[in-house]
Amino acid sequence: MEQHAIEIGGELIRFQLRRSQRKTMGISVSPDQAVLVSAPDKADFADIESRVRKKAGWILDKQAEFSTRSVEATPRQFKPGETFLHLGQQYRLRVDPDRVGVVREGSRIIVGAIQPNEADRIRNRLVRWYMKEARQHLPAALERCLPVFRKEVERKPKLLIRPIKMRWGSYISATHTLILNRSLVQVSPPLIDYVVAHELAHVGYGDHGPAFTANLTEKMPDWRTRKRALEKLGLELFDAPILR
């Protein structure tokens, strides 16, 4: 098999090219993040390269997903002493039957009116608390990012905050809706802003092609650094999605 590499938007994609008597072209990403391009014997390399460029966003997403899956996170026990993130800061879980509600106090997140051995109930209360916090903090990220995209985004999109298993965010052009994962409230504001900027860049570009990358780079020159930081944090986050 032939070995090739293509630079796309500052990202280097290495791939193996296997030619055969097949009639169509296919691209796959294995769990070790290796990229295999299967192409007809007579396919021009220019066409193969064009196909890889068009699929670059999908390839990078799959590699990031497998990179995250390759390390097993320790399952949450929802016991006192475990650490949880909120806006990029670590807090230790405390359970206090004599308190009411869930509060962030000093270096702790305190879950009240419950016993320390009730893991399921502790988890449920944390889920509700994180959603409440997300509804408070994520709209602010949209307000921070909108001015940079004022030429592309003529009106503010509708914002929905949801638990999303596979993505950090999504932009739906048909309804001009921005959907953000509630788990984002655990990471620092610069990383939240990266996700918002990424989705706002989709207002003008539906895929992850060179034009999209150039636009995002213009608006947020250090987006790759933020993206890598978010990917590294994924395993530490409670209720996090599989990373893109």
Rank of each mutant, 00 (worst) to 15 (best):
D32V: 06
R94K: 13
S173V: 11
I192L: 06
P97A: 15
D120G: 10
A119R: 13
Q115V: 04
K62M: 13
I161F: 11
K132S: 12
Q115I: 02
E7M: 09
V103I: 15
N215Q: 10
G209N: 12
R18D: 11
I27D: 05
I164N: 12
T213V: 14
P139S: 14
V100D: 15
E7H: 06
W58E: 07
E65W: 01
E231P: 00
R18P: 02
Y130S: 07
M166S: 10
E236N: 08
V185K: 04
R76H: 11
R155V: 08
P147H: 08
S188N: 12
P189F: 11
S38Y: 06
E11W: 11
P147E: 11
Q115P: 00
A39T: 09
W129T: 05
K79R: 09
L146Q: 08
P40V: 07
L36Y: 02
S183G: 06
V71Q: 06
R108M: 06
P116D: 09
H176T: 05
P221C: 02
A140C: 08
L36C: 09
V103A: 12
Y194D: 00
P210Y: 00
L93A: 10
R76V: 04
T217M: 01
R128M: 03
R18G: 11
L178W: 05
R22V: 14
K55W: 04
W168I: 12
A197Q: 01
E11G: 01
L12E: 14
A229H: 00
D41F: 12
A34F: 05
S183C: 15
V187S: 06
M166Q: 06
E236H: 12
P221K: 01
K165D: 13
I13Y: 04
D120S: 14
E231M: 03
S30F: 12
K151L: 06
R104N: 05
K158M: 15
I59F: 02
R244Y: 08
Q89N: 09
W223M: 00
G112C: 07
P31Q: 13
G88V: 00
A229M: 00
A140E: 15
Q16G: 12
W223H: 07
T74M: 08
D47I: 08
V95P: 01
E82F: 00
Y194N: 00
P97M: 10
L191Y: 01
N117M: 05
I13R: 06
L160M: 13
P116W: 09
E2C: 09
D98W: 13
S170G: 12
L60G: 00
Q77R: 15
K219A: 11
W58K: 02
R104T: 04
L233W: 01
L184E: 05
W58T: 04
Y171E: 03
I109L: 14
K42W: 06
E236T: 11
A119F: 08
I13G: 05
G9A: 04
P189V: 09
I109S: 04
D96G: 10
M1S: 10
V71L: 06
K55P: 00
D98M: 14
